[in-house]
Each structure stands twice: as C-alpha cells, then as structure tokens.
Simulated assay, not measured.
Amino acid sequence: MKLKKITVVLLAIAVAAAFTACGGSGSSSGSSDKVTLHFANTLSTSNAWNRAAKDLKKDLDEKSDGKIELVIDAGGVHGTDKEQAETCASGDLAMCIGSTVGLDAYVTEMGWINMPYVLHTMDDVEKYVFDEDGWMGKEMTKEAAKYDIKVLGYTSNDFRWLSNSKHPIKSKDDIKGMKIRVPESPMYLTFFKNLGATPTSIPFTDLASALQQKTVDGQDNGPQISVPNDLQSFQKYWTKTNHAYAPAVVYISQKVWDSLSEDQQKILSECVDDYLDEVKEKVASDYKGFEKTMKEDGCQVIENTDTLDKQMRAAAEKTWQTKSVTKNFNQDAVNRILEDAGLK
C-alpha cells in the first residue's frame, strides 16, 4: 500500500515537472539559470521581423553571457496568430511578434486599433502608438494584460493599400461594384460596402489563386505582404491609400516573464527595445525596395488623391459608428476616437 502511495506521488511530481518545462522559459520563478525562449510569428524568414530577430538572438546571448537563448519559430509553426496568442497566454509559448489584426482575434477588445483611418500616417503611429505616452499603445497594453500577455513594445508593420487589375483608382466612383477581397472581418466588409465595392472574405492562403482566376478584382494588403507573395503579378494598379494600419506587437507570456530573474527581465527589455528600432529601419528600407519591384514588374503605383482620401475617411467614420462592428471593442477607446473626430 505504501509503495502505491509513493508511486502516485512520484508520478504527480513528474507530471508537474513536464508541464513546467513546456512553459517556454525552462526556469523557476526569479531564477538566474539559463532559459530558452521560443519567439514565434506567422511570417516567412525573409520578412523584416525575422531578419531583425537574428540580431535579437545574438544580443540576448551576448548580454546574458549565454544564459538567455532565443529560438526563432517563424512561418506559423505554432499555428495562427490567434493560436499563438492563446498558447503564449497559457505559458506554453514564451514570446511572439504579430500584428494587432492577428492579436485581436484573441484580445477582442483591441479590435478598435485596426479600424480604417484610425492610424492613417506614420506621424499618427509615432504619436499614438510608438511614443511611450501614446494613449493607444497604453490602452492596448492594458487590454493584453487582462489575458496574461505582457506587451514588450510596438514596431512597424504594413499600411494597407488598394490594388486591382482593372484601372487606376482615384475616387469612390472607380471602386463602385469592384469585387475586393478583404480579411474575414465585419469591419472591413462594412468599410468597403460603404465605398460602394462588393467585398468578399477569402483566406489569405487562397488570395493569389483568386486574383489569378479573376474571382476578385482587387485586394487591400500593402507591399510588405503583397510583394513577397507575388501579388503584383496579378494586380497592375496600386493606390497608396494607407487606409488602415495594424502595428506589430512584441509580447511575452506573463507567466514566463514572472519566471525570469530581474536581471534577465532587464536584459530582455533592453534587447527588445533595440529590436523594435531595427525592425522599423528594415521595414522602411523594404518599402522602397518593394515599390521598385512593383514598378519593374509593370505595375502603376499611384498616390492617393484628395478626393479619394476624403471619401474613404467618410466611409471609415461611418464604419466607426456601426454598432455591429464595434460591439466587442474597448468602448472607451471607440468613444475617444469618435470624440476626437467630432462625431460624439
């Protein structure tokens, strides 16, 4: 009988140890032992996020004297953005970088940041998100914390442009009736319906074939996503509408963060700050290269017109006021956006 009890106790200890080891850090609370942090994202290794991550890995190794090892898990090996966030929140995955479009599938209150025309220029992004006093960045950080996700910082991603295979778009009239592929989101469906388009939700993995087969006429990803996926081969006309921006978020499991020593937390924070800056530089450089590639491939890259800009803003503001779109968002943030725009 005693032997059975001892066996049960040993089995319980083994299970608990196995569970802890899956947490991504491999260390106990406050430990200064070596830790291994898996850093996940859904993009290819050629993307700016992952190219810069190589330097982050090196910096962490050097500044921690080899006690912090970063493993870069690119290409969605941990699943979709939502699945990554869920796994990170549980502590079974240490760190991620992803856009707010992906993170808001899990932290639903955060969806307001992705509304069209909330962030329309890089000045907007710098002021409201990147700046340490920016209210939008602060608000998103608080929202994520409710899900046991600690935001380490924000960095560059892609402005959304509008492309199509038919003709240049210079006003709302040029969009009317056009079949536009949009993300699987009521927000984007509503926005493009307000512009007179015929939007349809198609998974990104099926987008290239849908464009090639003319299932849809256009789409609204920016160059950062479009060119690496060769979408410019099927889309001749690209208008730089910048109608939406989803910041990139670097975040860590709160459970994993709490398991690190103070020194490890300090080193990680400092190295991530450098990483955020490097990503910004690489994304800016990539933009110039991608636009050049588009033109070399025979595309027309068109500046937005004042007319189209005003019409798209009006469609966006109408979307902000659509309750079925914003019902799951942080209402304080939505109301502040409406108030700042003079709509409330």
Rank of each mutant, 00 (worst) to 15 (best):
T241C: 10
N229F: 14
V118F: 08
D173M: 08
L56S: 00
P116G: 02
S28D: 08
T80D: 06
V9M: 12
N47W: 08
M294W: 09
I113A: 11
K236R: 13
S253T: 03
C96P: 00
N157G: 13
E262Q: 13
M95G: 01
V77M: 06
Y287N: 10
D123H: 04
S185I: 10
L189A: 14
S185T: 13
G298K: 08
A246F: 05
E62H: 09
V107G: 04
G196A: 11
C271Y: 01
D61S: 08
Q212Y: 13
P168A: 05
T307E: 15
G91L: 04
N164H: 07
C299N: 14
I252F: 00
G298S: 11
G75M: 03
K150L: 04
A210Y: 14
C271S: 11
P183K: 06
M122D: 10
G23W: 03
S259Y: 00
K34W: 05
Y117M: 12
K127E: 13
A314S: 15
K172I: 15
T155K: 00
G218F: 05
V129Y: 02
K323G: 04
S163M: 13
T100I: 08
D123A: 14
I175Y: 06
A316I: 03
D277R: 06
G111D: 08
D133K: 15
L195K: 07
N41K: 03
T42W: 04
T326F: 08
K172T: 09
A85E: 03
R51S: 01
A315L: 12
I72N: 01
A16N: 02
S28W: 09
V301T: 09
W49T: 00
I175A: 05
D286S: 11
E281G: 07
G289K: 14
K292C: 05
G23K: 05
L60R: 01
A12P: 02
H38S: 00
V118H: 00
M312K: 06
D65V: 05
S64Q: 05
S156W: 11
D258G: 03
E317I: 11
V227C: 10
F204V: 14
A144F: 10
D306A: 12
E281D: 14
N194F: 12
N41Q: 06
N221M: 15
Y188Q: 14
D173F: 01
S171Y: 04
